[in-house]
């Protein structure tokens, strides 16, 4: 059995598992937790295009989630536009905003870039919290927007059960992972990595670093905004604290840093590890120690940065490769399961 076929069967196994899980797991709570897990894995993978490959640390991605969520929701509530279409409009809007932020800030290094993105996202949050109407659009300030679940169905992106949401976010996650994989093997991926690591050397080798980063930022903000619409349709209620908060931006970065930024598997591993911690600490300690999950995140982040600065994907990838080597090497056809 070759390495390639082992890898393929591992992928197949994961796919079957992910597709079949809702059939076995009937608990709506667990399904909800899984959906949010995929949601965060998706967000972090989108973030990773800039925060991982381009080597900068954006800490304001919640702004794009908010733009996506608010755009599609306003369009649906006020004009009856299908959230699917609104999703696209939100994505395009977020792309423009992303480029607008990227143009002046990509010249900044390290912490300054991170601070600039925080400031920008917080600015948007404060604006939304304090504006009731923006021109013809009703924003409702801190009260947020509620989507009445009247017209259920695929065309309105609204369902009475959780399974459709599960499959939608699963497809979105698979698509963004595939995109990341393709980019990492393309010229753009090489240029982003090179520009992130040694910008001067990259420029001398023909890389227009700023341009590569802008392209990554545009894609990342577009994809992030799509998740915003998903979240709005999933919870049917959005408010500034839920979709534009700093907590959300930070949680994305936490997941990426702990899982391993710049790798394809990192964001998914990070979400797999951290989301259950966050959900279960909220279920069991939510009323006694609220915010416990953030403390746990902090401790885990410190430990990971100390002992595995490139994230948990590195030792896990090594482990996986060793496992595959053993299967491919010593045991021939036996490993077909």
């Amino acid at each position: 059995m070759t390495r390639r076929s082992i890898n393929q069967s591992a992928c197949l196994l994961v796919a079957v598992l992910a597709l079949g899980l809702p059939l076995v797991m009937r608990s709506a709570t667990y399904l909800h937790i899984l959906i949010l897990l995929y949601f965060y894995a998706y967000l972090t993978t989108s973030w990773n295009l800039v925060g991982g490959f381009a080597g900068v640390l954006p800490l304001g991605h919640a702004a794009f989630v908010g733009i996506g969520a608010y755009t599609s929701t306003i369009l649906y509530l006020q004009y009856g536009v299908s959230p699917w279409l609104g999703m696209l409009v939100g994505g395009i809007l977020a792309t423009l905003v992303g480029i607008l932020i990227g143009l002046p800030t990509f010249k900044m290094r390290g912490a300054y870039f991170a601070l600039a993105t925080i400031a920008f996202a917080e600015g948007i949050r404060v604006m939304i919290e304090n504006i009731d109407r923006l021109g013809p659009f009703v924003i409702n300030g801190p009260r947020g927007l509620q989507i009445p679940p009247l017209k259920l169905g695929l065309s309105n992106f609204m369902f009475a059960v959780k399974e459709p949401y599960y499959y939608i976010i699963l497809i979105m996650l698979a698509a963004v992972l595939l995109l990341t994989y393709c980019i990492s093997r393309s010229k753009l991926g090489y240029y982003l990595n090179a520009g992130g690591e040694e910008p001067e050397a990259a420029m001398a080798l023909g890389v227009n670093v700023a341009r590569a980063k802008l392209i990554a930022m545009a894609m990342s903000s577009f994809l992030t905004a799509l998740a915003g619409t998903f979240y709005a349709q999933f919870t049917l209620y959005i408010h500034p604290k839920s979709v534009v908060s700093l907590d959300l931006s930070f949680e994305i970065a936490f997941i990426a840093l702990i899982g391993g930024r710049g790798s394809i598997a990192g964001p998914v591993l990070g979400a797999l590890l951290l989301r259950p911690v966050s959900d279960f600490s909220r279920i069991y300690f939510g009323d006694t120690v609220p915010g416990l999950h953030l403390i746990i995140f902090g401790v885990v982040l410190i430990l990971v940065m100390l002992y595995q600065p490139r994230g948990l994907q590195e030792p896990l990838t090594r482990l996986y490769n060793r496992l595959v080597d053993r299967l491919a090497g010593t045991e021939g056809g036996e490993a077909s399961a």
Binding site: S186, Y191, E198
Partner: peptide, 27 residues
């Protein structure tokens, strides 16, 4: 560069490929 600037976490081949991409779009 006088002070060498390799893309340190990447392989030698990866480093050289970044240069090669200046003349082609194909991996």
């Amino acid at each position: 560069f006088q002070i060498v600037k390799p893309f340190a976490t990447k392989s030698v081949l990866y480093n050289v490929m970044v240069g090669a991409f200046a003349r082609t779009n194909s991996r």
